[in-house]
Simulated scan of single mutants.
Amino acid sequence: MNTGPIRTLLVDDEVLARLALRQALAAHADFEIVGECGNAAEAMQAVAALAPDLLFLDIRMPGLDGFRLLHQLRPDTLPMVVFATAYGQHALRAFDANALDYVLKPLDQARFDQALARVRRHWRGLHARTPAGISPATGGPVQRLSVRVGEHIRVIAVETIDWIEADGNYVHIHVGKQAYLHRETLRGLLAALDPGRFLRIHRGTLVNVERIREIHPLFQGNAEVVLHDGTRLNLSRRFRLHARRALGMA
Rank of each mutant, 00 (worst) to 15 (best):
M1W: 07
P5K: 02
R7N: 14
D12V: 08
D13L: 08
D13F: 07
E14A: 15
L19M: 14
L19A: 15
A20Q: 11
L21A: 04
A26G: 05
H28W: 03
H28Y: 04
A29L: 08
V34E: 09
G35W: 07
N39S: 09
E42D: 05
E42P: 04
L50E: 09
A51N: 15
A51E: 15
L55Q: 14
D58P: 10
R60W: 01
M61L: 07
L64R: 11
D65L: 08
G66R: 10
H71W: 05
L73A: 08
D76F: 01
L78H: 03
P79M: 14
A86S: 12
Y87Q: 03
G88E: 08
L92D: 14
A99G: 12
D101G: 12
V103C: 07
V103W: 08
L104R: 00
Q109L: 10
D113R: 14
Q114M: 15
V119Q: 06
V119I: 04
R120L: 13
R120Y: 11
L126I: 03
P131A: 08
G133Y: 12
G133E: 13
P136K: 03
A137Q: 10
T138A: 06
T138N: 05
G139I: 00
G140T: 03
V142G: 04
Q143T: 03
R144V: 06
R148G: 13
V149Y: 00
G150C: 07
G150E: 08
I156N: 14
N169H: 00
N169V: 00
H172F: 05
H174M: 08
R183D: 02
E184T: 04
E184K: 01
R187M: 13
L190Q: 11
P195F: 07
R200N: 11
R203M: 04
G204M: 13
L206G: 04
V207L: 05
I212V: 08
I215K: 12
L218Y: 09
Q220G: 01
G221E: 11
V226P: 02
L227M: 05
H228F: 04
T231G: 04
S236L: 15
A243H: 06
R245K: 12
A246R: 09
A246P: 02
L247Y: 06
A250N: 13
